[in-house]
Structures are given as structure tokens and as C-alpha cells.
Design a protein around this nucleic acid. Sequence first.
DNA 1: AATAATTTTTAGACTTATCTAAATTAATAT
DNA 2: ATATTAATTTAGATAAGTCTAAAAATTATT
Lengths: 218, 218
Amino acid sequence: MLSQAEENYLKAILKLSQKNGQSVSTNAIAEELNTKASSVSDMMKKLSEKSWIHYVKYQGVSLTEKGHSFAVHIVRKHRLWEVFLVNHLNFKLDEVHDIAEQLEHIKSLELVNKLDAFLNFPSFDPHGDPIPNEEGEFPKSSAIPFSELPMKSRGKVVAVVMDEPSFLKYLDKLNISIGSQVEIIEVNEFDDSFDVKINDKQSHISFDVAKNILISLL
Amino acid sequence: MLSQAEENYLKAILKLSQKNGQSVSTNAIAEELNTKASSVSDMMKKLSEKSWIHYVKYQGVSLTEKGHSFAVHIVRKHRLWEVFLVNHLNFKLDEVHDIAEQLEHIKSLELVNKLDAFLNFPSFDPHGDPIPNEEGEFPKSSAIPFSELPMKSRGKVVAVVMDEPSFLKYLDKLNISIGSQVEIIEVNEFDDSFDVKINDKQSHISFDVAKNILISLL
DNA sequence: AATAATTTTTAGACTTATCTAAATTAATAT
DNA sequence: ATATTAATTTAGATAAGTCTAAAAATTATT
């Protein structure tokens, strides 16, 4: 069984390899985990011996298939717990990370899946990050913030990042809900607001609102 | 901050000192934690230096006030998580211990208290064990199994130990729920069953049912 | 009260995960 | 192509937590 330290390394490698390219450097991992390169080297040797990663000295590392799916599972746990903390325990968005960082190491497949069911199989966490399912598959649609929707392209609302009642109430007023069809008509440079279409009806939203709505391209 | 190992030692000492007497022996701790007496000795030295316990070589240990309240807090976390696992994630009673054993080490006062509120400040966990509140106080009423209620004394149902739907359904049929007033009228020696009063209506329950209902004396 | 049996502690070793400092390899620049 | 710089690895230490085996203290027995 993996130790917490090992799990954190795998997660860091996943994160870095998703962001940048294939091979992840020792220094990058050290920075991500606030540790020293020498500690990383030690751990890479160990993880490699256990076939969690591909490791060639001085050449950086990448996750094996086994390592990848395990790392994804940790991400899944982290994000599901964040949903729980925000939606059910009323934590603020900025308070949940440290706690989820601990909860993600709880070992019980059944727990994760029951939590998933309890939460109604959410596709995105409160930060708008996608939640892989039990098979490790991320929601197909690559969601982007409404504010980054290209002009003229239409999208569907898949998730809402912020969860404050006032915000949700405001979305309601704008007639925006999960599944709504949206489209950007024009960007107003001076205040970064948008003229938009929501279910074919013209409307207007601020940048702050737009960035908290996740869109999947149609 | 306490390590998980240290927390487990404190919890074990609390459990043993509640069960037996004051001073807890090294061997008893070793057995409780499935470890060796020598490991316990080492740890006792450390916990004593940090004033979590009173420790005199060869004389056994007891918790300091600080150690006691910390240990109680761990128990609180453990039992609250058990309530969550059983009542909200639909775990069976016998499946929750190992998971709660992990969850009890999650560090966040806010999390515990928000979980407590989410669960509606329960007084007993699904096994019928009392849950201390934020101040570390156990529910005043010392609940006992219905089967141990003295004759002629009245009690109030505070918790149900078993949680199987069939059992709960049966209790429903008997008109027993949290808060019901109960009283034992007569013990039937030959099958250990009881003639009882439930909310002043006469009824009859088996020993197996009675032992799974927790009563607080009125 | 002396000896035997049991309990507890100490000593020394091992593992995991980390660090600093030094050595090595790779990348960059002249 | 060589020297310099940067990145990475190795070597050796440290701390936490555990173990076995041996020593010391306590308790029980005769």
C-alpha cells in the first residue's frame, strides 16, 4: 500500500505532466511539493522500483499506467470531498483545499463510491475542476469558463464554480442553470463585461459572473 | 501537532482507563494497539515529555487534563464520522470502524463542528456509544440497553444500536422511536423476553430487540 | 525473605522520509 | 570543443516509529 508521501508524489507528477509536457523534472516536483531535489531523487528511485513511474536518471519521470490511474483516483477523492465540504458542510471555497488534502488519503474504495453517489455523481468540483468517475475517466466535455468561450461559438452550462446563495440566486434571475445554451455576442472592453445570449435570449453579464460559469462547447 | 501514532496511543489510554481503573499498564496498551511493550515504553517517554500523560517508570500511565481532552476529541471525531457513514452513506454498522479509524485523524476543528451540525448534533453513534460535544462533555444521561432497565423505572429511548432496515421497520411496528417513553413491566424468564409499556401502551419485546435499544432513565 | 515469574525498560538495529553538502551529469555559452 | 552553469544524484545525518534481545524492576510464590 502507498504511503501518504508516495501518494503526494504521484499526484504532483500527474499535475505537472498534465500542465507541461510528458517528462517531469526533479526540480519541478521538488518545487510543487516544497521539498528538496535530493528528497525527490530518493523517492523517484523508490516509486520506480515499485513501477509507479518510469524513471531514467537525469531524464525526468512519467507515470506508468498503474501510476497514472492511481494518481487520478487521488484527484477523484480530493475533488469529491471538496464537493461535500462546500455543498453539504457549508465551507467557503477557499477553506476546503487543506482539508481535502487530508481526506484524499483516506483508503476505502467503497467510501469514495458511496460518497460519489451521495453527492449525486458530480462532474465538477466547486472550483470547476473535472471529477473523474470510478473508471478514472474525466467528463468528456472539456469545460471552460464562460469568460473564455470563443466568440460566435455556442456552449452549454455544465457547472457553476461559486456556490454562494446570492450568486446562485443571481444566476436564477439571469435564467442560467445547468444545461442552458449560451453564446458570447460581444465583449465590452472597458469593463470586461459580455453581451450574451442565454437560451437565445439576449442578456448581459459581468466578467466576475462569467468566469464562475463553466461551459462545454457544443 | 500530534502524529497519528501519538493520537492512537492517547486514544488507547483513554479507552483502557475508562474500562479499568486509573493507571494503565504498558502491556495493556501494547495489546490494545497490537504492538510491542518496548514500543509503548518509548512512546510513553515521548508523550510524557510533551505532558500528554503522567508517567512514572514501571508505574503505568494516566492522561493529563490536556491529554484527556485531546483523546476525547478524537473519540468525538470517530463517532461523528460513524454517524455520517451509516446515516448518510448507507454503510453497514460493521463496516464503518476501519474507515472512522482513519477519518478521526483529519485535523480541522471547523470540519468536526460543521460535521456535527450537519448531522444534527447527535448524542450517540450508530453503535449506541455517546458522542462528546465540542466542550468534551458526554451526554449527561448515561444510556443503558433497554434490557438492563430496572423494573418499575421509566426511560426514554435515546438511540438504537442496530440499524438494519428490517430491525428499524420492526421498531416502527412496535411504535418505538427516539424519545418514546418505555418501562419494563415483567421479565419472562424462560425466553428472556419482556412485557413492556411503550408510551403507556402495553407491548412485548424479545431480549434481542431490547438489548439494541438504548434508554436514558427518567 | 529469598527466589521465581512477570512486567517494563533499555540498547541497538531497521525503515521511511527528510535534509545538507559534495559529486556527478547534462545543458549552455563562449 | 571546452569551460561554465545548472540540474540531478549520491553520501551521510537526522527524526519518528517500530522491532528483538537483554537488562532491570516489580510482583508473586513458596
